[in-house]
Amino acid sequence: MKIYLAGPLFSNAERGFLDTIAARLRAEGFEVFVPHEQFAEQKFMRSDGDSTADEVYAVDLAGVMGANAVLAWLDGTQVDDGTSVEIGIFSRLAAQDPARYKGIIGLSTDMRVARRKGLVPADGINLFVVGAIRASGEVVWSVDEAVAALIRLRDRP
């Protein structure tokens, strides 16, 4: 099963965490599309238009459409805007072809969110984003839970 790994990728720490998750998923036998692996880092730092928004959109959209599931990292004071778009696109794909597009797993490891768990609707994560995730998947609270949820999606008939 091919996983699209969505999440913020704008700092070394963010890319490092996504790389760690990707390595774990690959060790579990998943094929993983990681957006920041698709472009040389220097392209994102240039101001001469070497890497255009159109190019990034085309490559990432192909990654989303080529995946069977999305693992979306939700940490932060709000869900990353690009991650939200990826969730929205995949949510519609999963609704239209659930045999091909198995679902979305939202991963929150942020203690600011975990403190609200069960206290407020959607645990304080944007309601529309959580609704899109839950339409075909679930929100989990650790990488171990995310792997287990993806295995369930993979093994679902």
Rank of each mutant, 00 (worst) to 15 (best):
M1K: 12
M1H: 13
K2I: 04
K2L: 12
A6V: 05
L9Q: 02
F10G: 04
F10Y: 11
F10K: 03
F10R: 05
E14T: 11
E14I: 06
D19R: 00
A22Y: 01
R24N: 05
R24Q: 08
A27V: 08
F30A: 06
E31K: 02
P35M: 01
F39N: 02
E41R: 03
E41D: 04
F44V: 12
R46L: 14
S47Y: 11
D48C: 13
S51I: 12
T52D: 12
E55A: 06
A62W: 08
G63A: 02
G63E: 05
G63T: 03
V64C: 04
V64N: 05
A69S: 05
L71I: 07
L71N: 04
L71C: 04
W73R: 10
V79H: 01
D80N: 08
D81H: 15
D81P: 07
V85I: 15
E86Y: 12
S91Y: 02
R92K: 11
A95Q: 15
Q96N: 15
Q96P: 04
P98E: 03
A99L: 14
Y101L: 00
K102D: 00
G103W: 04
I105M: 03
T109A: 00
D110T: 11
M111L: 14
V113I: 10
L119H: 01
L119S: 00
D123C: 04
G124E: 02
L127G: 04
F128D: 04
G131D: 06
I133L: 00
R134C: 09
R134V: 05
S136Y: 07
G137P: 05
E138Q: 14
V139T: 09
S142D: 04
V143S: 00
D144A: 10
E145I: 06
A146Q: 01
A148M: 04
A149P: 11
A149V: 08
R152I: 01
R152L: 06
L153K: 12
R154G: 09
D155Y: 09
R156L: 11
P157L: 02
P157F: 07
